[in-house]
């Protein structure tokens, strides 16, 4: 299952969020060596881990967090706007309510065996498209290695560069924007072999009435609910 955690339902995910920040520290700092992010409590969080951040948490049956994405609204401060605007130099930093920025994608490389890890990566990618589509987001931006870029272009995703590739972490990376629509989700499901719904979203109140977020495969159109 992939849990969607926002500031609205974060109270239900205290442990899971803690696990996620620890996972990020283990992967990004202790494994990949991003020393600037090192923390004494071994919880990797930065200035963008605010109430505006949306987390996707890939969990195992017992609730253990084994993978994560962080999504930031591009209308608020995010990495491309505040830290790496130069990476988007050609097309400019994208800012729109319908566009999210994807960062801090990782799976637990220390705990999962290789096949499970591959599957986890695939589930996270499909979950990302599911989440965006259901949340009404039309695109997301991210920094990606050019090798991966090619792989996703090949399966037919609409990915456009925002700037020129740069050398980072020992390989070439490029800022891109990815289009999300039903077709993209279908293509991802098929290419990655993940047919099942991944995302579990526990909603929260908006205003003074309950707004229940859609969840699950048996989702029905609004008319049917009336």
């Amino acid at each position: 299952m992939i849990e969607v955690v926002t500031s609205r339902n974060a109270l239900l995910y205290k442990d899971a969020l803690h696990d996620m920040f620890h996972l990020r520290h283990r992967i990004f700092v202790e494994r990949m060596g991003w020393e600037a992010l090192r923390k004494s409590d071994r919880l990797e969080r930065d200035q963008f881990d605010t109430d505006d951040a949306i987390y996707l948490l890939l969990t195992e049956d017992d609730g253990k967090v084994v993978g994560t994405h962080r999504m930031l609204p591009t209308t608020k401060p995010h990495l491309f706007s505040d830290v790496f605007p130069n990476l988007c130099a050609v097309k400019g930093v994208q800012r729109d309510e319908k566009i999210l920025e994807l960062t801090r994608t990782c799976v637990d490389e220390e705990v999962l065996d290789r096949p499970t890890m591959e599957k986890a990566r695939k589930r996270l990618m499909v979950g990302l498209f599911e989440f965006c589509l259901r949340g009404g987001y039309e695109k997301f931006t991210l920094l990606t290695p050019t090798d991966l870029l090619f792989r996703y272009l090949l399966i037919g995703l609409d990915i456009k560069p925002l700037g020129m590739p740069v050398d980072m972490d020992g390989n070439k990376q490029v800022a891109v924007i990815v289009k999300v629509d039903q077709q993209a989700l279908d293509v991802m499901r098929m290419a990655l072999g993940v047919p099942e719904t991944q995302v579990h979203y526990v909603g929260a109140p908006q205003g003074d009435r309950l707004v229940l977020a859609p969840d699950g495969a048996q989702q029905r159109p609004l008319e049917a609910a009336e």
Binding site: T146, L149, F150, L153, L154, G156, P161, M164, P165, V174
Partner: peptide, 20 residues
């Protein structure tokens, strides 16, 4: 260097489209 980076990226897109 910048030209080579351009050609690199164009090649990736060209290749993906060609394969498709």
């Amino acid at each position: 260097k910048q030209d080579e980076a351009c050609l690199h990226m164009a090649s990736i897109y060209f290749h993906a489209k060609l394969e498709r």
